[in-house]
Computed example of a mutant assay.
Amino acid sequence: MPRQCSIANALEVVGERWSLLALREIFMGVRRFDQIARNTGASRDILTARLRKLEEAGLLERRPYASRPPRHEYVLTESGRALHEVLLTLMSWGDRYVTDGPPPNVWAHSCGKVLEPVTVCASCNKPVLAEDMAALRVAEDMAALRVHEPQ
């Protein structure tokens, strides 16, 4: 039996190339279907299906911007906006390990420096390293962990 995990659950929603590229475009401010199709290279039928799935999953809302003919744009929901860190981290990994040469795009942070995303622990604010983590079984290990939490 396959391991149950939230990564697999998330991939059911966003684990397809055109879904992630559509989300990339919407994060970058591109909200209209034709522009999303042009910037991703997705065919119209595939993009329609992916956007519909993202909308059904609650990551996007489709809002009208013209009535004749009826036209819609795509806007991120709170759930969709929460994927921003995931996309930035995926882009950073791609820049470092997959892309030949310099990155095709970089993001500047409001501090004036090139953004380099880092995942930190919300409790101690230290960087998250694989060797510092342990998988816990929610029902058993989390109950034991709560007993040892400081009050």
Rank of each mutant, 00 (worst) to 15 (best):
N105K: 12
L88K: 07
T48L: 09
G29L: 11
D100E: 14
L54Y: 00
D95I: 08
V120Y: 03
R44C: 09
V13C: 02
R146Y: 04
K113I: 05
I7F: 14
P127N: 11
T77H: 00
P104T: 10
R146G: 02
A42T: 01
E149A: 13
N125H: 15
E78S: 03
R3A: 08
I7G: 10
E61R: 06
A42K: 00
M1W: 03
W18M: 12
A8N: 12
I36F: 02
E56T: 00
P127V: 09
L54M: 02
L60N: 01
L115V: 06
I46A: 15
A135V: 13
M142D: 06
I26F: 05
G94C: 13
A10I: 04
L136D: 01
G15I: 04
E12D: 14
E12I: 10
A49M: 12
P117F: 01
R71W: 01
E16G: 09
R3H: 07
A37E: 10
E61C: 05
E12Q: 14
V120W: 03
C124N: 05
R17W: 08
S110W: 09
N105R: 13
V13F: 03
V147Q: 11
R31G: 13
R50N: 04
V128C: 06
P102I: 08
V128N: 05
H109F: 10
V13R: 01
A37M: 12
D100R: 15
C124D: 08
L83E: 01
P2G: 02
A143P: 03
A130W: 10
L90K: 11
R24E: 15
A130D: 10
L88P: 00
S92A: 15
